[in-house]
Amino acid sequence: MDGKDKMTAANFPAIHAEELELGYRSAQGLNLLASGVSFDLHRGELTCLMGPNGVGKSTLLKAILHQHPPLKGSIFLENEEVRQLSDRERARKVAVVLTEKIPAGAMTVHELVALGRVPHTGWWGQLSPQDRSVVKRVMDITRITQLAGKKLAALSDGQRQTALIARALAQDSPILILDEPTAHLDLTNRFEIMYLLRDLAKKAGKAILVVTHDLEVAMETADTLWLMEAGKALQQGSPEDLMIQGGIQSLLPGDKWQIDPESGKIRLKDPPNLPQIEGPIHLSHWIRNVFRKNPELTRPERIVVRDQPFGIRLFFADRTEELNGIAEMIRFLQQ
């Protein structure tokens, strides 16, 4: 967390992986999920790992944590090979936030965060004054000091996730790995959590890897995107580059879905022969949305939409129709 560490660690990446082969060996033979996976994770950066379910994201995380070593290739945590680190040394380099539910609801937030000190304490687990000050500091950083005495079962989903991040921070490791930290969270909490992580990467100089399915949030907050695709090499780049160059489209196999290049959102592909829509962009966007959702609607030749007062005019070959709302328009076009 301090500047000196940052200087000495600056020469090599926080995580370096070379030609990993990820998969499982079972009685039925080899189940290869991904091969040729190489990457560098850097300090001071928030990296988002995306990819469809079952492509091997969790297996990659397990490989980094040495819970399920890769079939081939090697992983280095700050220039030290992960398989040569002891459990304790590894825990001092990588902290995690997992998707699994915390079973102990009676634990208080403070007790949870203090558990992050486990790799640093003695055999009895007693906190030294230094451990206590780290716990206090990370609770300040994540702004959960006022929750310290609360039981985990009494927290909201967003607060619980923040407390888990605080626990991982208390581990005082240069690398932080989070598995879907924004799942089950509401809109503002999703951004709150991701900006908190971004802040930690920038101010505390941590290397942060987030597995997420939330493209919108990843576009908004990530420094680097890693895209995992079945049977292909890991695509890496800034989210903006990947969006402009179309790399992100690889997240959506098949031709049913597309990514709106302007908003970065996933939507259905435009159906053929959309009517021509005229009017201010923020209004015409939603008219188009209606036709994407309801491909069965009769299509006028031309639609003009205007603001203040809101109104829609539909032009057919033989007549025009004046409507005051979108629901009214849908009802009219269903006939």
């Binding site: 944590l65 819970q67 002891s86 459990d87 304790r88 040394e89 590894r90 825990a91 001092r92 990588v94 902290a95 995690v96 997992l98 699994e100 915390i102 079973p103 102990a104 634990m107 949870l112 558990l115 992050g116 486990v118 790799p119 687990g125 581990q171």
Partner: peptide, 14 residues
């Protein structure tokens, strides 16, 4: 104490 968070968290804490 670490096991209170489940096996995976305990392992991640060394």
């Amino acid at each position: 104490n670490a096991m209170l968070l489940g096996e995976n968290y305990a392992v991640s804490m060394g």
